[in-house]
């Protein structure tokens, strides 16, 4: 489950250790923009040590590595051997570099005794070329589990200003979602960058959800609540999804491929959507309670 993915600065011990208790679905240990150029070695050692020695529970451990070739290779060697689940390479635009990183991961996993293919990739698309080649990036390797959008760098690259409403990113967001979903992987939205603006964050997260994103990057722990609110099904949505499944099961027993529920036609696409809602509810720990209520009724 990747509703919320929280960036943690890779060279700040006090913030890294907060990751053991913050309610994010995934933590992104940042070795790129959050670490000064002359402290790259320090950040790499600190993140690696944190991965080895701190208990982050079930949170996915993602590391945003550096784009520079020499730093990139050192970062990947260090953090994969330390237990990173997923590598986030920045400024990806196409399959070539992802394939190269995939081959390096093959080598590291073999040498370190890690199950082949264990380490996943979540490329960050944050340039105009990155958006243009989104589908190619999504299909570059079986390791690619999601495409993530980096809106700030993208806006700078295409020469527009970021706004609270984010209309300047609408095409890029939709393009990324289509590419990711066509490849059968997840789409992760850009962070909302005003840490104090919770209503703006919620609106931005609801927009991302409505466009088909499965989760959202976060630069502040204050944003986790709003992101979870946007990406977790409501009680009414879960109850409706359960009704849809029951109605279709009854229809199939009668030999029907489509049934009616509350005056609306229920067919396979509606059932698929209901199953996605229930899968997310189940992963969020909400389904058991909802099923108990439905059974009681």
């Amino acid at each position: 489950m990747r509703r919320s993915l929280l960036f943690l600065p890779g060279n700040q011990p006090s913030l890294l250790q907060n990751g053991t208790v913050l309610p994010a679905d995934a933590l992104i240990f940042d070795l790129e923009d959050a670490v000064a150029a002359d402290e790259k070695d320090s950040g790499r050692y600190l993140v690696s040590s944190a991965l080895r020695h701190l208990d982050f529970g079930r949170r996915e451990k993602i590391v945003r590595i550096n784009g520079d070739a020499a730093l990139r290779e050192k970062d990947i060697w260090a953090v994969v051997r330390a237990g990173a689940d997923t590598i986030m390479p920045p400024k990806i635009a196409g399959a070539a570099l992802l394939k190269e990183i995939g081959e390096l991961l093959d080598e590291i996993e073999k040498e370190a005794g890690i199950e082949a293919g264990h380490t996943k990739l979540m490329p960050l698309l944050e340039t105009a070329a990155g958006i243009e080649f989104a589908y190619e990036s999504a299909l570059a390797s079986n390791r690619v589990v999601a495409l993530a959008l980096g809106g700030e760098d993208l806006a700078a690259d295409i020469g527009c200003s970021r706004t609270r409403e984010g209309k300047e990113l609408l095409y890029s967001r939709q393009r990324l979602v289509i590419a990711a979903r066509a490849a059968g992987i997840e789409a992760i939205d850009t962070p909302f960058t005003d840490a104090q603006d919770n209503s703006g964050l919620l609106a931005d997260a609801l927009l991302a959800k409505s466009l088909g994103f499965s989760g959202k990057l976060a630069i502040s722990p204050q944003h986790l609540k709003g992101i979870h609110q946007a990406f977790t099904p409501t009680g009414a949505q879960i109850a409706y999804a359960l009704e849809v499944i029951k109605a279709m099961e009854a229809g199939l027993r009668s030999g029907l491929a489509a049934v009616s529920l509350r005056g609306k036609m229920i067919d396979k696409p509606v059932v698929d959507q209901a199953e996605k809602t229930l899968a997310l509810a189940r992963a969020s720990g909400l389904l058991a309670a909802a099923e108990e209520i439905a059974d009681a009724e």
């Binding site: 011990p13 320090s42 050692y45 600190l46 690696s48 020695h53």
Partner: peptide
């Protein structure tokens, strides 16, 4: 007030 993992990392660096 560093944790063990931080002491390790800083000394290694």
């Amino acid at each position: 007030g560093a944790l063990d993992c931080t002491i390790r990392a800083r000394l290694e660096t």
